[in-house]
Amino acid sequence: MRILYNIYHSKGIFLVWHQWCLYYAAGVCLLLSPVRSDDACPSSCICARDAGTVTCLPDGEETELPGDMPEWTSTLILKGRNISTLPRGALTINGTKLVMMTLSLSYNGIQVIEPYAFLGLPRLHLLDLSHNQLEFISARAFHGLPELRSLYLNYSILPPAIAHLSGALSAENLRNLHRLELAGNGLKSIPLERLDMYSLHALVLTDNSIENIERENITNLYQERRLRVYLSLNPFRCNCELEAFYYWLKNSSQCPDAGRLLCSQPEGKSGIPVEKLRSEDVDCMSENLEAVSYVFLGIVLALIGVVFLMVLYLNRRGIKRWLNNIREACRDQMEVYHYRYEQDSDPRLANVAV
């Protein structure tokens, strides 16, 4: 019995020792094994996992987006790369939906945004595409962003892309958008077919080429009371066509920078704040009445001229006789002056008179 007990006890010690050896080997393997690809920080990028931030700066002539973004990335800042095109699912990792909430792609020379370029980012709240060179924006460029709150497109849109902008910014694509910035793009009008976007609170259109806001858009602005529109640094043409916009500006608080809106034309009103204009300056009725009054005056003067010519024509014989009489009277008077002059010039006649 003693021998059997010793054998059993020795076997138990061996099993425990063998189990600890397995645990130790597994730990060593984990420590020595490479970091998983979904946690790896891309080259030329700085990662801060605690903050969920990945910042990628230019490293040579980079022309592509960094691959294998960590799945924990909530903020991606990418600048200074020569990325000409954003293809479908440009930031998707093997079809995985990222938790990314902020994406900054400014200063990357982006020219084309293809359909579904941001697919796989359903939780994205802020997208910054400022300071690029966009020539084409697909109508479905922003599909797949149901949670997008802020979209920045400042100083990015070239003239060829302006025609595509209204389709890309439709309410169907951006139902939850709160802030839209389109400063410095040479826009001549509000590039939205419909302003009744469900959640839009701020629309930044500063430093563009807007001369007037159409009456239809003014009507929509009155309906969207929560919307704030920023319009400074635009060359407003202060004539009677500005009437609807002028009264909206005076009667509404929807333009926070209203005091900085200046007239650029006509020359007599250049530099004058739009708010300081008089109602007569933009009163189309007064301008129309003034134009009508000038036309009426011209018609009256023309009628007077016609009547005068008709009177002359009808009395042409009497006028001719009157002119002849005046001519004869003038001739007689001149003969008398001539006779007196001859007498005064003869000295003999002067001695006789003495």
Rank of each mutant, 00 (worst) to 15 (best):
P235G: 15
Y5Q: 13
H125S: 06
S345F: 06
G89K: 05
R225C: 00
K276Q: 13
T75P: 01
Y313M: 01
L76N: 01
A163W: 03
Y313I: 02
I13A: 08
K97F: 09
D257R: 07
E61S: 09
P34G: 09
M1I: 08
P58A: 14
V35W: 00
N185W: 05
Y116E: 02
L303F: 02
P160D: 12
A90M: 01
L4Q: 15
E267K: 11
S43R: 12
L349R: 09
D196Q: 08
Q333D: 15
L303E: 00
P160A: 12
L309Y: 11
V311E: 06
N220S: 02
V112W: 12
R149E: 13
T53Y: 06
L121F: 07
N94V: 03
D257L: 12
I46S: 13
I113R: 07
N288F: 03
L31S: 07
K320H: 03
L103H: 04
V229E: 12
L134C: 03
Y313L: 03
N220L: 04
L65T: 14
K11V: 13
C255N: 15
H9G: 06
Y222F: 08
I113W: 14
L126Q: 12
I319D: 05
I3E: 13
L312A: 09
S156F: 09
G52M: 10
G184T: 14
S264A: 10
Y198G: 10
L200Q: 03
A117Q: 05
C238A: 15
R321F: 07
S170A: 11
P256I: 15
L169M: 07
L127H: 07
F136P: 05
A291R: 07
W20Q: 06
Y230R: 00
S130G: 06
L76G: 02
G305A: 11
Y5G: 10
E216T: 01
N351R: 15
E181Q: 11
S199T: 10
T85G: 01
I137P: 10
A353G: 11
S130I: 03
E275C: 07
Y230T: 01
P122V: 05
I190R: 01
L78Q: 05
L205P: 04
Q133L: 14
S189W: 00
Y116R: 05
Y230C: 00
D332G: 13
S10A: 13
I3K: 05
R237V: 08
M100H: 05
L126G: 02
I299H: 02
N82V: 07
L261R: 13
G89N: 04
M101G: 15
S293V: 00
D332F: 04
S44K: 04
K79C: 10
L277K: 04
L4E: 15
Q265N: 00
E114F: 00
L153E: 05
V28D: 12
K11Q: 14
Y8W: 09
G109N: 12
L242W: 08
S345D: 04
I162L: 07
S170R: 03
V112H: 15
I299S: 04
N108R: 15
G268S: 11
R81L: 08
H178T: 02
A139H: 14
A139P: 09
C330S: 12
T75D: 02
R225T: 06
V99F: 10
L233E: 12
V16E: 13
T73K: 01
A168E: 10
S43V: 10
A139W: 12
Q223I: 06
H178I: 00
